[in-house]
Amino acid sequence: MKKNLILLFIACLALVGCSKNYDILNSYSDIILTADSSVKVINETITFTVKDNEGNDLTDDTVFFVDGEEIEGNTFTTDVVGNYEVTATYFEVEADPIVINFHDGTGINFRKRVLIEDYTGTWCGWCPRVAYGIELVHQQTEDVVAVAIHRPSSNESSPVYDPYNFDSSELENYIDIPGYPKGLLNRLTQWDNPEPNNINQVIALTQGENPKLGVAMNTAISGNDITLDVNVKFGKDFGNELKLVVYVLENGLIYDQHNYTTYYNSEDPIVDFEHNHVLRACLTPLMGEIIPNNETGILNVYTKSFNISIPENITNTGNIEFVAFVTDAEGNALNVRSAHPNEVQEFEEL
């Protein structure tokens, strides 16, 4: 009788039918730790979140550590100025650490946003890989600004014809990374392939030390005219050569997209694919317009104004998007901001 009961117990476990509370936990090799802010004034609170690559929230089952000491829950505050390293463990999986900062209120920092430039093409069957990766990133953070740079031919008889082609040869020659697709983070850092499996690389750039400059735009469209003021505020004395880049994008463009990937249900072509954040015009030189050194001092606000006609290749003025960012002397984007028509933005000071 005892033997029969043991056999019954083993069978019950195998079938997972003897306990209503039995849950099968997913296996994770990567988890992504983020903070709602990387910088706060002392005695303010920072909240931490952990998600997987697909955006599932794992926070409730995660243990958080600050400078190696376990904390209760997923929030932290302190009255001591300084930097703190935060780590997190979801069962046996560890997240990449992040650094947060508490200051006394005298420091000037700005919200950090990351630029993704996606070199793509409607003819390019592998390019949906990056587009899908961008969608996954947007599910996890609002601190990313995407730009789709379509390549490489405007010749309708060419096998690589793209109706949204934008000549970015000067920039691509500087980057010197051949082939498509390629995703560049903050202009010069290549997003590792396959991009949908490496969204943690992007998220990590939204964390840590915050930039010492911020961007705010005032935009207006009236009839066929665009009025755009790009404002840059500096939280320290830069002194070195900074450049401003300003893009005009268009969203909601519909055109078939070739697809050799398993994303988007492996459909090829993807009929009536919606192309977003498509680069339509650059209002500055593509490599940037120099901001005079005497304008880059602490607390100064530099303003560049544009009064232009709506670019002729724009098909729907309601879908226009503006992007502005500042690069350093090497070309790395230091901070970026996007705006829609008829928007008045404030600086995102922290």
Rank of each mutant, 00 (worst) to 15 (best):
K3N: 14
K3P: 03
L7I: 09
V16L: 15
A35G: 11
I42R: 09
E54T: 13
G68H: 08
E69N: 12
D79R: 10
V80K: 12
G82Y: 03
Y84A: 04
E92I: 15
V93L: 09
E94T: 14
A95W: 03
P97E: 06
I100T: 07
D104V: 07
D118K: 00
Y119L: 00
G121M: 02
T122M: 06
V130W: 00
A131T: 06
A131M: 04
Y132S: 03
I134C: 03
H138E: 12
Q140H: 01
I149N: 02
P152Q: 12
S158G: 04
S158Q: 05
P159A: 08
Y164H: 00
N173P: 10
I175F: 07
G183S: 03
P196V: 06
N200S: 09
Q201C: 03
L213D: 07
G223L: 14
G223H: 13
I226N: 01
T227L: 09
L228S: 07
D229Y: 04
N231T: 12
K236C: 00
L244K: 04
Y247P: 01
D256S: 12
Y260K: 11
T261Y: 11
N276L: 05
H277V: 04
C282V: 15
T284G: 08
M287F: 14
M287E: 09
E289Y: 07
P292D: 08
N293I: 14
I298M: 12
F306T: 02
I308N: 11
N313M: 01
I314C: 00
T317P: 02
F322E: 02
F322S: 02
D328A: 01
